[in-house]
Design a protein around this nucleic acid. Structure first.
Lengths: 183, 183
DNA sequence: CTCCCCATGTAACACGTTACATGATTTG
DNA sequence: CAAATCATGTAACGTGTTACATGGGGAG
């Protein structure tokens, strides 16, 4: 249901094609709601079927022709309903934790290498978030101060998540380090 | 690939049926790797096809007959390979953040209600983690001190995640509260 | 002029969820 | 004794991913 709503959300800003929608996802919510083109096109078809969006074929000048989708009145209602509804639970899939649970027999050094690799990936992700926070271009697209605040908060969430992940990782690695003088 | 590996991981401990595997998932890794029965059965069939597990039909005494799966040598190898491999990236889906990004026009009160509802759900989740940490029964199943440490760390991760989520939420709600004397 | 990338989209497949089916056993 | 739950599993459907197709425009 969230994909549906997100498409409606983007289309409320301005009517556009499936291809451009994919770009918008990537450029804004991609870090916490990734999508592929196929998903978008499928959902657009379903949305049109359900009368929440309407499309028109538009001649592409040089580029391929494209189908431009716009919200209908019912689409706007649906979006509004979704915005007010309680959120669905977060769905987390954490391959590292899964591995950890089964790693008791793995030599400490091999496990620590896995943890270190994961740590590096988080550090990189964190840097991305920091970069996004300082990109003026992103926030200049906001149509109100409140909207900019919301966008900033969503990026700060990613940052906070990375920090929590790093803190936990460091504790975990310390706890798993074989004790030198240990019995 | 992770589901595959997790099944191998459970089967290494002892051979069992699809049904019991589902229970094991629920009782241990469910909070960061949820599965349904259908997934498990499908994967078991695929694993047998690939020769990583072998099954035998076992008469159920009173209960329905069941098919008990056990690791093969190749299955053990596969598990070991997976344990040493770098982890796949975490895949996060965060419906609240998605909503936030499109919520600029929503009245502050309605948005805050959504945030408050989410907060309550996190508080509840957090309590679950705390409860699990103090359940002796869980850790008494560990076959080594190291294994217990690993399990504890995976629960602590959930706890740390909840705390990060709560801290971010409180900041967010403060930032989104309409200012009384505002310009 | 070849190769890669943009802009557009479809098709096939893999993974995840929901719903159903069955017979024993416990619970209200 | 009816209703829920256990223990086992299958079938149908929906969502997400990977791979392909097409033609123009820019870069080496």
């Amino acid at each position: 249901m969230s994909l549906r709503a997100a498409i409606l959300g983007f289309l409320r800003l301005d009517p556009t094609s499936g291809y451009m929608l994919r770009k918008r996802f990537e450029g804004s919510v991609g870090s916490f709601w990734s999508v592929t083109q196929s998903q978008i096109y499928r959902e657009l078809h379903a949305l049109e079927e359900d009368g929440l969006v309407a499309s028109e074929r538009e001649p592409g000048d040089g580029k391929p022709d494209r189908r431009v989708y716009a919200l209908t009145a019912r689409g706007r209602d649906e979006l509004d309903t979704w915005l007010r509804a309680p959120v669905e639970p977060v769905h987390l899939r954490h391959p590292l934790l899964l591995k950890l649970v089964f790693a008791a027999e793995l030599e400490p050094a091999a496990l620590d290498e896995v943890l270190a690799g994961y740590r590096a990936s988080i550090v990189a992700t964190r840097a991305d978030y920091v970069a996004r926070l300082t990109m003026k271009e992103i926030f200049s697209l906001a149509r109100s101060k409140r909207e900019a605040t919301l966008w900033r908060l969503s990026i700060e969430h990613g940052l906070a998540w990375c920090d929590a992940e790093l803190a936990w990782l460091d504790r975990a690695r310390r706890a798993l380090r074989p004790k030198r003088g240990g019995r």
